[in-house]
């Protein structure tokens, strides 16, 4: 769980960093350049397969844990106050994970499926760009796709909700991964926990700002 989770945490950094290029407010020029790099670079494409494998493993491990842990307590307590001993999001990783997965299905349908298998309805060829490496190829205008998708206020709401679920999932997951690897240190664990909190909040605020900014017309 920790190992696969950590891979996904690393992926989110790259994903968030590249998507944040839209905040340059240059009509998506920088963003599209890097999106194209990610979509065509061989190493990245191999890592993409790894990403799906790790995601799948993460889900399978989660389901196995859920099933085994349910069997470990066949009779529930009549009265229980877990809020007195642990954080709600640490106890709700399965629920938060399911919400993220539901969001992910929609998210992949919006961006990943059309960019891989065609069908990006309103794709226009990119404006001439400075880099020669894709001057002759047809490049997907993912930025334009974002603008189209985030016209719908309900989509924006679902995305923000999905990102919130992710935030809480990460708040527990980040520090939990270190504990699983056997790293719990008087000096370093408080630092790891602080970094985990900061990472979760920064990543998710940036992600949430993307659909909101496009919908509100703050970036174009």
């Amino acid at each position: 769980m920790g190992l696969t989770g950590f891979f996904l945490i690393t992926f989110l950094i790259v994903h968030c960093l590249i998507n944040s290029m839209i905040f340059f407010n240059d009509g998506g020029q920088t963003f599209n350049h890097w999106a194209h790099f990610m979509g065509t670079n061989l190493i990245i494409r191999i890592m993409e397969i790894g990403l799906f494998v790790f995601l799948l493993l993460h889900i399978i491990q989660g389901l196995m844990l859920w099933q085994q842990n349910k069997a470990a307590r066949p009779i529930a307590y009549a009265v229980s106050h877990p809020e007195r001993n642990s954080a709600w999001y640490s106890r709700s990783m399965g629920l938060l994970g399911t919400l993220i997965l539901l969001f992910l299905v929609l998210h992949l349908y919006h961006f990943w499926v059309p960019s891989r298998f065609g069908g990006m309805a309103s794709i226009q060829p990119l404006e001439p760009v400075s880099l020669s490496d894709y001057a002759n190829q047809e490049a997907h205008n993912l930025y334009r796709e974002m603008q189209i998708v985030f016209q719908n206020v309900w989509v924006v709401i679902i995305y923000v909700f999905g990102v919130f679920s992710l935030c809480w999932h990460l708040m527990h997951g980040f520090q939990s991964a270190f504990q699983t690897f056997g790293i719990n240190h008087k000096k370093y664990t408080p630092i790891i926990k602080t970094i985990g909190m900061a990472y979760s909040i920064v990543i998710c605020v940036l992600f949430a700002l993307m659909p909101i900014s496009i919908y509100m017309g703050w970036v174009n």
Binding site: Q68, N69, R84, N85, R91, H172, Q175, Q179, N184
Partner: peptide, 24 residues
């Protein structure tokens, strides 16, 4: 069951056993 690092055990332990032991 399996440990998912909620740390409820440490909070409820009458002897205050630390979850640092679990990491160890």
């Amino acid at each position: 069951g399996n440990c998912t690092n909620t740390y409820a055990c440490e909070a409820e332990c009458p002897k205050g056993i630390s979850v640092a032991n679990i990491a160890r």
